[in-house]
């Protein structure tokens, strides 16, 4: 365990210091890495809901979009500081996710389809409420991240540090929930929800907490994205890509592990951007679909556990 902690510290140091030191001057590479980490953030939130909550979500774009619009509007219309608006955007995403609570009482497929429908609804709302969101025209000139302790968080390297910190916090939180007695109860629920209920676990409540946590993480990531690209429109912020990419990433890396979603997101995003998009500029998502189908059929636990089993 000590050796693992040491390895972890080395890895953390490398991601914080080495990556910006090596690639810091190359805006293109840093941009790619930041985008991949944004997908990784959603993938972690998705995997938390899928692994601990036992629920498959096809609509994380809804939380992502709500988070990005909330933070953009808070900073632009009410003049909130960016770093305060981002966690608030997470909370607003949680508030919106509460609309999904009735679906939690139902079994897996119902939740999955309900959330699919919600993502559509939020996109329509963002388009139609143009007095607030400026509709399909979109919001431009969203404030960038501020300068903090002499570091310009709005620069590529600064944004990189922010997203890495967010991911580290998410993973720590995920690991804590998994270890805590909530995690134990959730694992038991996975085996038999009825038996777990009988011993006095409020399973719907636990699932709701996982949904809230997942929505919060995704909302914060959405806010971060809004402040780094400084532009939003409904079709972009609520786009299906924000739902599909994280799923493929988490499944690819292994959604039952902590590091799987991050490694999966780095692989999938880079493959998608550098390979699939250059092969098929319009329908490149078809490759993601093929990849996802192949993973489910041949390696549903992801590639990481597959390698581990081979080497064990």
């Amino acid at each position: 365990m000590n050796q693992r902690n040491f390895l972890f510290a080395v890895l953390l140091l490398a991601t914080y210091v080495l990556v910006p030191a090596v690639f810091g001057d190359n805006n293109y590479v840093m941009g790619l890495i930041i985008s991949a980490l944004i997908v990784a953030g959603i993938a972690i939130a998705w995997a938390l809901l899928g692994n601990l909550g036992g629920m498959v979500s096809f609509g994380h774009a809804a939380f992502f979009g709500v988070g990005s619009y909330a933070s953009a509007l808070l900073t632009m219309k009410l003049g909130w500081p960016v770093l305060l608006a981002m966690p608030m955007a997470g909370l607003i995403a949680v508030l919106f996710s509460a609309a999904m609570l009735p679906a939690l009482r139902l079994s897996g497929p119902y939740f999955a389809l309900a959330i699919l429908a919600y993502a559509q609804i939020f996109r329509i709302l963002a388009t139609e409420m143009d007095w607030l969101t400026q509709g399909a025209k979109g919001l431009s000139r969203i404030p960038t991240l501020p300068v903090l302790f002499g570091i310009d968080l709005g620069s590529r390297s600064g944004s990189y540090l922010v997203i890495v910190t967010l991911l580290a916090a998410f993973i720590a939180c995920y690991a804590w929930v998994r270890r805590s007695h909530y995690g134990t109860a959730l694992r038991a629920m996975h085996d038999s929800e009825q038996a777990t209920r009988v011993v006095g676990v409020n399973s719907v409540m636990l699932k709701a907490w996982m949904l809230f946590l997942s929505a919060f993480m995704t909302g914060v990531i959405g806010a971060f994205n809004a402040h780094t690209i400084n532009f939003l429109e409904p079709d972009y912020a609520f786009g299906g890509g924000w739902s599909v990419l994280p799923i493929v990433a988490a499944i690819f890396g292994g959604y039952r592990t902590l590091s799987g979603p991050v490694i999966g997101a780095l692989c999938i995003y880079l493959i998608d951007q550098l390979l699939f998009k250059s092969l098929l500029p319009t329908g490149h998502q078809i490759m993601l679909g093929v990849l996802l189908a192949a993973m489910i059929l041949f390696a549903p636990d992801g590639l990481l556990p597959l390698f581990r089993r081979r080497h064990a």
Binding site: V56, S107, I247, Q285, I286, G289, V290, L292, I296, P300
Partner: peptide
């Protein structure tokens, strides 16, 4: 394994494939 969740994801993937094939 875990048919309920995996079948959802598989058919979702097939849906993505069909949509993009139609688009292409």
């Amino acid at each position: 394994k875990n048919r309920e969740l995996n079948s959802l994801m598989l058919s979702f993937a097939i849906g993505i494939i069909i949509t993009n094939a139609v688009l292409l």
